[in-house]
């Protein structure tokens, strides 16, 4: 029998990953508990996206163990991997919507492909439910090119919600958005957590987002988590890599 202890959703130990001679992650460890939202903060290029791509199995670690929902994701065969991925939602940094499909087709795509004997009316109902959850029912027949940045993120979130995931990985959900839209997305993330009872890892360099949506904050620097704790704990330090981040954050988040 498999380990049914689900109190830890993600457990990472001693994770190493490099590309050629660019060492990105160097002995990183992480634990995500059920029902928790953790924030991964870090500068551009610090390896945040690489980390969550490893968690969902898009990238392979050089060494270390990665357990997701009690499965060692990099040791699964194809069938087991599919089964596990159905329980994980992933929001891409640039949304990655299918631009040849409408919003409806984008959102229903994971469902149509994976639940082949689901009826058309059930599918429509599910699509409408998640679009309603993200507040986007009126754009259902539009193409991604016709959407604003904030709407794209919402469709991306709707597309991850359609499979009712237990774990959601958000890659910079508020980057490139104006402050008002950021605020809306932050609220949406909190709403998703309550309504769908998910645990999440949220990558950001937006401190407002971190403060609002995170139960715990981890500061990624030089391939490891430098500090962790709640917002105040993380920034209560003289370490320049942390305070520097705090000061530069506003410039950096404008660049992206």
């Amino acid at each position: 029998m498999k380990n049914t202890k689900h109190d830890k959703v993600v457990v990472i130990k001693d994770l190493y990953k490099s590309f050629e001679d660019n060492e990105v992650l160097k002995g990183l460890g992480l634990e995500l508990y059920k029902g928790e939202n953790i924030i991964v903060l870090g500068r551009s290029g610090s390896g945040k996206s690489v980390l969550i791509k490893i968690i969902i199995g898009l990238l392979k670690p050089d060494s270390g163990t990665v357990e997701v929902l009690a499965e060692k994701i990099h040791e699964l065969d194809k069938k087991e991997l599919i089964k596990l991925r159905l329980k994980i939602g992933f929001l891409f940094q640039h949304s990655a919507l299918y631009d040849s499909m409408t919003v409806r087709e984008n959102v229903e795509f994971p469902l149509v492909r994976n639940m082949r004997n689901m009826s058309k009316s059930k599918i429509n109902q599910a699509v409408e439910e998640v679009l309603d959850a993200v507040g986007l029912t009126d754009t259902i027949d539009q193409y991604p090119a016709e959407l604003s940045g904030g709407q794209e993120k919402r469709v991306g979130i709707a597309r991850t919600l359609i499979l009712k995931p237990e774990l959601i990985l958000y890659d910079e959900p508020t980057s490139g958005l104006d402050p008002v839209t950021c605020e809306e997305i932050n609220k949406l993330i909190m709403k998703v957590k309550e309504r769908y009872k998910t645990s999440s890892i949220i990558i950001t360099h937006d401190l407002a987002c971190a403060k609002q949506t995170g139960d715990r904050i981890l500061m990624l620097s030089e391939g490891k988590f430098l500090r962790q704790g709640n917002f105040e704990e993380v920034f209560d330090t003289d370490d320049e890599r942390v305070t520097g981040f705090y000061n530069y954050n506003f410039i950096e988040s404008n660049e992206n």
């Binding site: 969902i56 898009l58 159905l86």
Partner: peptide
């Protein structure tokens, strides 16, 4: 990353 998006949606 649309191809990756398919992959993560199983």
């Amino acid at each position: 990353e649309q191809i990756d998006a398919m992959e993560v949606s199983a």
